[in-house]
Amino acid sequence: MSNALYTDLSGYYDLMCVDIDYQAQSDGIRRLHQLFGNGGHTHLDLACGTGPHVRRFIEFGYSSSGLDINQPMLDIAATRCPSASFMRQDMSSFDVCEPQDLITCFLYSIHYNASIEKLNDCLLSAHRALAPGGVFCFNAVDKDKIDNALFVKHTARQGTDLFTFRSGWHYDGQGEQQSLRLSIEKADASGVQVWDDEHPMVAVRFAELVDLLEPLFEVQVFEHDYAKITPWDTASGNAIFVCVKR
């Protein structure tokens, strides 16, 4: 199904992400931008979905915009953030009308670049779109640290319907492809429906990722904790990358 699940169920996306602390994530990146940025306030969120991070950056005083490949998501985002601009583009190859001081990519969405080549294209696009001294911030997972047995699960209600969401990474131990496995179960008076989906995503080691980044950016890597600014301990498999344009 590839992106069909997100497109067809865009109205359920916010339920699927109801346990995400968008405020804490956005505030953590805002503080990192204050430390490493150029003082500017133009912002672009890659793979913005329905726009929850964009809304937070608008509240922080940024001139914020969003980019996503799925138009139904962007329609919801435009309603949520009427003062923002949204565009339907592929993040592996995008253009902007004005230089950006901050580009973000939350929720491990950098991995939606389906190959190392596409990932590198995305980094080049971000570098091109940034103003001098601009910052690209994203979170990523190291393919060698993925535990295929782990998954996250939560439930949420919409009216009388009960939804159960499950997601987890899977990497077979070889190559540059991993997947995000998703399951959505909807229970209502008529019974139970289940959607299963698997999204191909790029698999990369952090050392490989840093090698791609360093010709373009000065790179800082932090522990995956938006409440603290703690340098990455080189052991954990999740991290936040803060990349200042060279």
Rank of each mutant, 00 (worst) to 15 (best):
Y171A: 02
A187D: 00
A189S: 12
G168R: 09
R166T: 05
G191L: 05
S190R: 12
L182R: 05
Q193D: 15
L212F: 10
R205Q: 06
A203P: 05
Y171G: 02
L213E: 00
E214G: 03
W169G: 00
V202C: 14
G173D: 09
V204Y: 02
D211R: 15
V192M: 03
W195K: 01
V192A: 03
L213H: 01
S183H: 03
V210H: 09
D211F: 03
V192Y: 00
F206C: 09
V194F: 01
L209T: 00
Q177Y: 06
G173A: 07
Q174S: 09
E185R: 08
A207P: 01
M201C: 14
D211M: 12
L212G: 04
V210Y: 05
R166K: 13
Q193P: 02
D197C: 14
V202T: 14
S183Q: 14
G173H: 04
W195R: 02
W169N: 06
L182V: 10
L209P: 00
D211Q: 12
I184R: 02
W169C: 01
R166E: 11
G191N: 01
S179N: 07
V192E: 06
R181K: 05
E176R: 11
D172M: 04
S167V: 03
G175H: 13
R181Y: 07
Q174T: 13
R166M: 09
A207R: 11
L180A: 05
G168S: 07
G173W: 07
W169M: 04
L209Q: 00
S167I: 02
L182A: 04
W169K: 06
D211L: 06
R166F: 10
D196G: 04
E198W: 03
D188T: 10
F165M: 14
R181N: 15
I184L: 12
Q174F: 04
V204H: 03
D211T: 05
E176S: 15
D211H: 13
E208H: 06
H199T: 02
S190A: 14
V202N: 05
L182D: 08
R205T: 08
S190V: 06
Q177S: 14
H170Q: 15
R166V: 05
D188F: 10
A189C: 13
A203Q: 04
M201N: 11
R166G: 02
M201F: 06
D211S: 14
H199N: 11
F165H: 14
K186G: 06
E214L: 02
L180W: 11
E208G: 09
K186R: 15
G191R: 02
D172A: 06
Q178L: 15
A203Y: 07
L212K: 03
G173M: 10
I184G: 03
K186I: 07
S179T: 15
V202E: 01
F165W: 13
R205A: 09
H170T: 15
E208C: 08
S179P: 01
S179L: 03
E208N: 06
W195F: 09
H170D: 09
Q174E: 14
V202L: 06
V204D: 01
F165Q: 10
W169H: 04
E176Q: 10
E198A: 11
G175M: 08
Y171S: 00
D211K: 12
S190N: 09
R166L: 12
